[in-house]
Structures are given as structure tokens and as C-alpha cells.
Design a protein around this nucleic acid. Structure first.
Lengths: 147, 147
DNA sequence: CAGGATCCCGCTAGATACTG
DNA sequence: CAGTATCTAGCGGGATCCTG
């Protein structure tokens, strides 16, 4: 093989970089939590917002059934809800418990790991609530100037 | 109009939920930082970032040229780099400075807002480095059990 | 050097229908 | 109730070519 072309070197650099990204923990985490429904499921299971059904239970780790979750996250399709729940279970962030009643009852709950991740999400939420309005203002100003 | 079908009610719920999500600051922030290249640009401009060589350690606010960034983020296409930089500038997270040399010199730097966001990213990085190996282990165990 | 304009492909979310 | 299976369209993102 003679000397490589610039295109070949670039291609190789891309491959290397992709491999690097695939092994980067921060990148993996970002991919995880940025999933459209992950944050919402974590929030639903981790916090104790006012609940439509039933009375006020608050505080202790929340467990929710499949159908409760699907009502809570009104816009989610069954496919995505199931898929997201599976992946979270796979990662050890939530537990899935099947109770062999008739019909079956399935409940989901955060693990310790999931709760710790929920804390990180809280940090994100805090920044968002403190600064997103500023970001939005910048955006409008920028658009106005460019128009 | 007679009573609505279940499908109609579901469709309406989805619309409402989408609207809610569109106005949710946390969601907006998540969308922002989960962009494939945003985190890397923030890291590149905010510190010495994920680079094997070079001594590391977080340093003073860095300013970088377009071509430096494109070399640092080896896998990025010109289109995505430009697009991402623009959107970050629009949001007031970075500044773009054009120096009319020949040929032109363009440098990018974090704003205060950008630096504050960079701190949040650091929290994410910390969790990732502390817990992602556990997540990965869970994943393997899960796959093994399912195989 | 820095970036605009285009074309195009792969992936994935979503709708729909079926099942234990 | 809590899923699985399949099919499809839309679009994000990359490659490529061009310019001030």
C-alpha cells in the first residue's frame, strides 16, 4: 500500500473517534438519559407528584404499574414504553416485578442505582429552571438580529 | 358530536403532552446537551477535555479556532460542526469572534452561561465515571441471563 | 480558512393489529 | 393487563461539492 490519501486518513480518524466515543462513559450516560422517555420515567418513579388516582402517598420509593406509567406519560406509545422500561431494567436502574395474579400485575421501581441517577437528573433540572429562560431570550434576540 | 372514541382521546392527550414537553425546561436542556457534538465542544472549550495525550487538568477559559475544533473532534463533519457551533452561539453559550485577517480567523469561546453549563456537564461526567461500569456490568449479566 | 448548499441513506419512532 | 410483531414514513446526519 502506498501513502494514504487525505480521505483515507480522515476515514480512519473517524473510525478511531467513534470507537473512543463508544467507550466514553460520559457519552454513554448522555445517550442514556437523553432518551425521550427515560427522564420522564425516572421522574415518575423517583418523585412523588400529585397522583390522579388514589390518595396522597408521598416520600417512600414509588412503585408503579405498567398502566399507571402509560397514563402518566400520556404521549408515549406502548412500544416505546416497553422498550424503555426494558432497557432501564437491563441497566439495573429499575426493577420489574411480576405478581401472578389474574390478570398479571407488573410493577416497576427504582433501584439504588436508579435513585442515584435520579439525583443527577435533579441537578440538570435545577440548571434548566435557573437558566433556560436566559437561553431562550438569547435565542430570540439572535433570531431577531438575523431577521 | 357524539362521545369521542378512545383513539380520539388518546390523540388529544398526545398533543397536549407534546405541548407540555416542548415547554418543559428540563426537556429543552436535555435535548440541548444530548446532541452528539455539544458535549464535546463544551468539553473542548471548557477544559482540556478527553484527550489521552497532554497533561490534562481543567484550565482557564479556552478559545479555539474552527480548524482546531475540527481536528480535536476528529469524527465530526463540517456540516455538523458548523451547525452545532451556530446553535450554541444562538443560545448564548459560546461567542464567535471574526478577526479580519487574510484569510479570516474565527475563534470560539465559552460565555459565562456556557461555563456554568459546563459545570453541570461535569456532574454528569462524575456520575458516569463512578457508576457506568456498574451499569455495563448489569447489562452483561442481564444479557447472559436472557441468552 | 470557514462555511453554505444539496443530495441521500439509515435508523427509529409511531401506528396498527394481535396474544398469553 | 401487559405486552409482542410488523410495516412504514420522516428526518437527522453524513458525504460531497462549491464559495467569499
Amino acid at each position: 500500500m502506498p501513502t494514504r490519501t487525505a480521505a483515507q486518513r480522515r476515514a480512519q480518524a473517524k473510525v478511531d473517534y467513534d470507537a473512543f466515543l463508544a467507550n466514553c462513559p460520559s457519552r454513554q450516560l448522555l445517550d442514556r438519559i437523553s432518551d425521550k422517555w427515560v427522564a420522564l420515567i425516572l421522574a415518575a418513579l423517583g418523585s412523588d407528584g400529585p397522583h390522579p388516582s388514589g390518595g396522597g402517598c408521598a416520600g417512600e420509593p414509588r412503585s408503579m404499574r405498567y398502566s399507571e406509567l402509560s397514563r402518566r406519560l400520556a404521549g408515549v406509545s406502548q412500544k416505546m414504553l416497553t422498550q424503555t422500561l426494558r432497557s432501564l431494567e437491563r441497566d439495573g436502574l429499575i426493577t420489574r416485578t411480576v405478581t401472578p395474579t389474574v390478570p398479571v400485575t407488573v410493577t416497576y421501581e427504582l433501584t439504588d442505582l436508579g435513585r442515584s441517577l435520579h439525583q443527577v437528573m435533579y441537578g440538570i433540572k435545577a440548571w434548566a429552571e435557573a437558566h433556560m429562560d436566559e437561553v431562550l431570550a438569547n435565542r430570540e434576540e439572535y433570531d431577531a438580529r438575523m431577521a
